[in-house]
Simulated assay, not measured.
Amino acid sequence: MSYENILLNKEDKVSIITINRPESLNALNAQTIREISSALDELNSDASCRVIILTGSGEKSFVAGADIKEFSDFGQEKAEELARNGQNTLFNKIENMTKPVIAAVNGFALGGGLELAMACHIRYASENAKLGLPEVTLGLIPGYGGTQRLPKLVGKGIANEIIFSAKMIPAQRAKEIGLVNEVYPIEELLTKTRELANVIAHNSPMAISKAIQAVNLSDTEKGFETEIKYFGELFDLDDKKEGVSAFLEKRKPNF
């Protein structure tokens, strides 16, 4: 499939989706959301793809936010539809992918951009990255999961500070509070992200898929029971048999 606002690059077991709207600092509009969603569907059904990296073009911006021009004249009904469709089409889809999605945050990640990064399973950032949720300066609140995912990552107090103040958080501070996993110089960001992706790509894809689902339920009553269920299910699958055999034979597994 061809795309206008994103680039899709498949490299062995790792695929990279690059949001490519540099003229608008990679802002999310409806078409870009649909294209990322379609690319994720394509990669989720591609057995050769084990890990997905999501990043922005250039060195200034991951995603500078949503394209405000698209919804500036919306009323309540259309605004609720916008938020619901966006969450179902893209943000929740990322969180519930069967393959890990790593955000390589290469600059501004504001509003919908930070929400996009938070929907990913892992976040690496460049030293020049700035992260924040500025919606209250527009008389709004985050609508793509920001009020729900941020407290889970950094705690309610810090999440409230970030949301209420609308201030931008520098990359190093984002690491300190657990909003991003690691921070690297901009020229090393994608290399370091690929290194992590390659490590993950050589582990059991079935086990990782089950782990994603279990971790996503870690703050619910179903969490422990889901872990037990998936732990048991994996014992009957080929990946477990290969992994245990490789361990006993002192070789690397071939998943």
Results as ranks from 00 to 15, higher is better:
Lys192Val: 02
Lys222Pro: 01
Ile158His: 04
Phe164Ser: 12
Phe224Ser: 14
Ile228Cys: 11
Ala207Pro: 00
Phe235Met: 15
Lys229Cys: 07
Ile141Pro: 00
Ala166Asn: 09
Ile228Tyr: 13
Gly178Trp: 10
Lys156Gly: 02
Lys222Leu: 15
Lys156Trp: 03
Asn181Phe: 08
Pro205Gly: 03
Lys210Ala: 07
Lys241Gly: 00
Gly143Lys: 06
Lys222Arg: 15
Leu196Pro: 00
Leu189Val: 07
Ser204Lys: 01
Phe224Gln: 15
Leu190Asp: 09
Pro151Ser: 10
Pro205Cys: 04
Phe231Asn: 13
Thr220Trp: 09
Thr226Leu: 15
Leu140Gln: 09
Val154Ser: 05
Ile228Ser: 12
Ile186Thr: 11
Ile141Leu: 11
Asp219Trp: 08
Ala166His: 07
Leu179Phe: 10
Pro142Glu: 06
Phe231Cys: 13
Gln148Met: 11
Ala211Leu: 14
Glu233Trp: 02
Ala197Pro: 01
Leu189Glu: 06
Asn160Lys: 12
Gln213Lys: 13
Asn216Cys: 03
Leu140Thr: 02
Met206Ile: 05
Phe235Ala: 14
Asp239Arg: 00
Phe231Glu: 12
Thr147Asn: 10
Glu187Ser: 05
Val154Ala: 10
Ile141Ala: 10
Ile200Leu: 12
Leu217His: 09
Pro185Leu: 06
Gly178Glu: 10
Arg194Gly: 01
Ile177Gln: 11
Arg173Thr: 12
Thr193Leu: 09
Gly143Pro: 01
Glu227Phe: 14
Lys167Phe: 07
Leu190Thr: 06
Leu140Met: 12
Lys152Trp: 01
Arg173Gln: 14
Asn198Glu: 13
Leu179His: 11
Leu140Ser: 05
Leu217Pro: 02
Lys210Asp: 02
Ala171Phe: 07
Asn160Cys: 04
Ile141Ser: 09
Lys192Glu: 13
Arg173Phe: 09
Ala197Thr: 01
Val183Met: 06
Glu188Asn: 12
Gln172Lys: 14
Ser218Gly: 04
Ile228His: 12
